[in-house]
Write a protein that binds this DNA or RNA. Sequence first.
RNA 1: GCCGAAGUGGCGGAAUGGUAGACGCGGCAGACUCAAAAUCUGUUGUCCGCAAGGACGUGGGGGUUCAAGUCCCCCCUUCGGUACCA
Length: 842
Amino acid sequence: MSVYDHAAIEARWQAWWLEHKTFKSEVDPTRPKFYVLDMFPYPSGDGLHVGHPEGYTATDILSRWKRMQGFNVLHPMGWDAFGLPAERHAVRTGQHPAEITSRNCDNFRRQIQSLGLSYDWDREFSTTDPDYVRWTQWIFLQLYKKGLAYPAEVAVNWCPALGTVLANEEVKDGRYVETGDPVEKRRMRQWMLKITAYAERLLVDLDDVDWPEGIKTMQREWIGRSEGAEVRFNVADGDSDFTVFTTRPDTLFGATYCVLAPEHSLVSRIVSADCRPAVEAYVQAAQAKSDVDRADTAREKTGVFTGAYAVNPVDGRKLPIWVADYVLGGYGSGAIMAVPGHDQRDWDFATAMGLPIVEVVSGGDVLKAAFTDNEDGVLVNSGLLDGLKVPQAKARIIQWLQERDLGKGVVNYKLRDWLFSRQRYWGEPFPLLMDKDGSVHAVPEKDLPVQLPVLDNYKPTEDGRPPLARAEEWCRVTDPHSGEVLFRETNTMPQWAGSCWYYLRFCDPRNQNEAWSTEAERYWMPVDLYVGGAEHAVLHLLYARFWHKVLFDLGLVHTREPFQRLFNQGMILAESYRDPRGKYLKRSEVEREGKGWKVASTGEAVEAQIEKMSKSRLNVVNPDDMVRQYGADAMRLYEMFMGPLDRDKPWTEEGIRGCHNFLRRVWTLFTEREGEGLSQRISSAPATPEQLALVHRSIKAVSQDLEEMKFNTGIARLMEFVNEVMKQPELPREVAESFLLLLAPFAPHLAEELWTLLGHGDSLAYESWPAWDEAHCRVSSLEVAVQVNGKVRATLQVDAGLDDAAVLALALAHEKVTPWLEGKSLRFSKRVAPGVVSLAVG
RNA sequence: GCCGAAGUGGCGGAAUGGUAGACGCGGCAGACUCAAAAUCUGUUGUCCGCAAGGACGUGGGGGUUCAAGUCCCCCCUUCGGUACCA
């Protein structure tokens, strides 16, 4: 008997697939398409860890399965290769980021190919390829021409540690989400994309995609639509006014003061002389306050009176105007009317400052807390609104305001425009030129791509301008027509740019004349299944949807949404070990001691915990090691066998060993005999009814599990099949072949090898997926459990053809059942399922 | 605080309202072996019992049902997301 030599088998088939371009796909209108896409990786210098291939394996299994079902499968892979790590490396070493990137891509490709993933490698590209950058810039120009890209002097999130600005979405609690570096506010001229123009469609079209509800909810909350009204307030004894946004215009009679955000432009104009020092101090302090501090909702509310009053448009009452930082400058109009009776924040503020609280919606006790019910509450103390319920009162007052031109119903969004420029080197240059007056000129499309200049230093300039400003020659361009000297934009695009449209380029990646052909886009799009981590729930997925909608409006794509179905795989976790001082230890430095762990060299007790894999925790598992020891097929199998794809799961080496054992059992099943070749167990005899039942049930179960992406239970079915046939002396050829086809998507190398051993000359990649026949799934006899008052008291073996009445009679007469019925009256008796009889006595 | 997901053996996990724990890991026993490893076979929720068998058991508490891990109500814990958005 030969041994299962996974290394040789896997090398042979990987070479065969590459050489024969087995997984090359082309537009073919005669066949149905299936576009299955992985979120492409940033090729870091560390290479893959075993978390990456989880999603890749799942999509690969589906790709292989869909091919066997006759689909024309588009399954591409590429590299999201612009980004900061390569740039930092370049700053340190002086090497060009492109060199580093290209090395990393080679490594990622090697690792991915070593897993036998069936990508169409003819479609591979990197977002940093000039050929790709050209079209990224081209799309940017389309946005620019539509007025969706504009420069603005804005308060930005400046990260001193990185020397660049960040998008709102990249900052949380005043820190950069990736590194935790603090972020501060600065005013700078930046390029913005008008994503807010698409807020409503980005929200509404979520209804039409098959995404996890959680992700949809996160996007909806990020967009943050709220319906309300804008109301204009005049400042008493002056000629200025300001507008507030409120979702509760019905409570207008309950407003007892107004608040302006510290940033509000009106503050300095209306402040009274005696209040001015206090207000100016407060505004300054608010500006100096870090985002971390301002984001702290638990802290006491603060604010100062301006000395000015606003006039409530509904009743002419004078309301004091305050400045407080609980009102945000960037949302709505940066000003509110405060209704402490019915808004908890206003209530807190009013209580702290001794401002009056008035009840205008009955149902609560506004002395104790704000009453915020907005459905059944009835308006009081509100003139024309008295007696109305909240929804009716809202409609009524909006109408009243509109008739008098004092306000109007509006919809507001939390979503802000997308800050789209970065002060970095390793990104796409903007295809834009500035003249002396500061007017912007688009680079003609024929001159794209605008390539990055070569620099000898990738740091920002001494005076804080982006690295591209170092390339003085590159920056100066002479207009061929006017002879005028123009200056290039020295900001670059954020890393999100490249990933906003790569799924479209994959449809037609070698097109030299356009970003993609209509033919390819119409055939392949939309992406039928998109698999990746949930960490991109808002950022990438919102940005890509935005670009896609712009492209849709331009007639360049034919679907409203790019990703029809989205699936988020869970995280792969791993055990990590810390000594009593909290220092992390490698797996090789610790050993088992009873139920716990100890340091191998010193015997000191060690704390073990399951955590996210990371370099700093010393618990990263490298797929190269796993492939070497157990093989790519075992690696793939284990990634899927660990548990449901969407859950977080801990990696254990025992687990992958188990999957390796299973594959070795399969190998043994087919090859066990003296010498080489096929096992004598494989027979030409026809399958018995029992064998047919086994194989047809397996086909059915595996097919249904694949349909639902339940890979773990699908693999369990394959294991059950092998456990069963291992007990039998013969394995009919037809049964063996069906099994190999079921195994093929999961463990393709071994399946190919054994397929060949059975005498087939070609790859099984395009063999038909086996079909099951319900008639064969049936068995001649089955077990029936008999429950008495919900507890199983007996099981009987009955002929499958027996009718319910007969089975019931057998159950009632069974010797283990009768004692439970004695002296009781039968209240319920029924065969409630093929395998269950339920009896109730009392 | 709010939104979302999840709590099942020693571990990863399985289970259209119908025999809880499939499948795998780990453990135990046996076969093979001079021996070990590998492999194969059996066994393995907990408690009581020699056994037959019984009781208990899916985070906790109620409820619906002939029947609840699954459906309903309340609560606890963990993990993600979000946070003064008027």
